[in-house]
């Protein structure tokens, strides 16, 4: 499900999947006030890939790889804070 990442000195980043990234970035700054309205219950979650860490391994996770399973996606302000 999660693909293991080779460890290097560069810091990997992820981002949206399936749509032109620049378009979204532009849209996001342009419609800053409407950002919260981009997400609706009952609609598909936007797909993304993100690097991560799980049980001793650096991995890359794509949300759509989890189709067929329930997913709980949690955002939090930062490591070493509570959740």
């Amino acid at each position: 499900m999660a693909e293991e990442l080779p460890v290097g000195c560069a810091r990997p980043t992820g981002g949206p999947v399936g749509e032109p990234v620049e378009e979204i970035a532009k849209e996001a700054t342009k419609l800053k006030k409407e950002e919260g309205q981009m997400i609706h219950v009952g609609e598909k979650a936007p797909d993304f890939v993100a690097p991560g860490y799980q049980k001793g391994k650096f991995i890359s996770v794509k949300l759509s790889d989890y189709l067929g399973k329930w997913v709980l996606l949690c955002f939090y302000p930062g490591d070493f804070t509570f959740v």
């Binding site: 979650a45 189709l67 996606l73 955002f75 959740v83």
Partner: peptide, 14 residues
């Protein structure tokens, strides 16, 4: 990030 929490079903629907 704010403390956002999303429940996504097996079809990928929030």
């Amino acid at each position: 990030e704010n403390r956002g929490r999303f429940i996504i079903d097996p079809d990928g629907v929030i």
